[in-house]
């Protein structure tokens, strides 16, 4: 579902992503680990066509993001680290607005049921987003992915700043998305969550993918050792 081949992107003399090869299949959660500046966010931005690659391709559902940005965006939902919504609108109104941009018309009751499916309570769904916690806003993001039946979910450090309970709830939602057949690419610093939630783990360092592991084949402590070895190399 997500195919990245020989992807390279530099900003001036800094190589952000170098010859990156990566695939995320349907029903897979791929966790991209790496230090700050490793190239995780740039990879996601390349998939969103917010920056253009110098070389290589970033495809979603077989479509090259650089060539057909709007069509690729129809297939995905993106949840940034700090999902900002319109504070003066309710969760329902926000969801209806963003779904509407994809041509999906939701009634209020549809929106409420999607939000509840994402773990938000009905009462909260009608309240202004200005009063939402970060976890609640992330749930609106997941509701958006559910409502749009997104084939691909791109997440940029979605659990950073969440308390353990909220982080765990979020992980459950991702697992649900995986079971629905979505391909999830999540950039994160959270080794624990990557191991617990991911099916595959990639470690990036200085723009390159230096290690790729099956989450089931590695223990928490091994993952930490491998990660630190790469970071200190």
């Amino acid at each position: 579902m997500i195919e990245i081949n020989d992807l390279t992107k530099s900003f001036g003399s800094t190589v952000a992503v170098k010859d990156l090869k990566l695939n995320v299949a349907k029903g897979e959660i791929y966790c991209l680990l790496g230090a700050n500046g490793a190239g995780k966010t740039t990879t996601i931005n390349l998939l969103l066509n917010l920056v253009q690659p110098e070389n290589g391709t970033a495809k979603i559902g077989g479509l090259n993001a650089a060539d057909e940005p709007l069509k690729t965006k129809e297939k995905l939902t993106y949840i940034p680290e700090n999902l900002a919504l319109y504070p003066s609108l309710s969760g329902v109104e926000n969801l209806r607005f963003f779904c509407g941009l994809s041509g999906i018309k939701l009634s209020d009751s549809d929106a409420v049921s999607y939000l509840m499916e994402a773990g938000l309570q009905e009462e909260a769904a009608h309240k202004r987003v200005g009063g939402y916690s970060k976890g609640m806003r992330q749930k609106v993001g997941i509701a958006l992915a559910i409502a749009r039946s997104s084939e691909v979910l791109l997440l940029d450090e979605p659990t950073s700043g969440l308390d353990p309970a909220a982080s765990s709830d979020f992980a459950t939602l991702l697992t649900n998305m995986k079971e629905r057949g979505s391909a999830v690419l999540m950039a994160t610093h959270d080794l624990f969550r990557a191991k617990e939630t991911g099916t595959k783990i990639g470690i990036m360092n200085k723009g390159s993918l230096v290690e790729e592991l099956d989450a089931a084949d590695v223990t928490h402590s091994d993952l930490e050792k491998i990660y630190l070895n790469h970071m200190r190399a």
């Binding site: 969103l48 917010l50 129809e74 939902t77 940034p80 700090n82 999902l83 900002a84 319109y86 941009l101």
Partner: peptide, 13 residues
């Protein structure tokens, strides 16, 4: 407000 990044990821320019 930060909503720009979410707007940028929508299938509308």
């Amino acid at each position: 407000k930060g909503t720009y990044s979410l707007l940028q990821s929508q299938p509308v320019s």
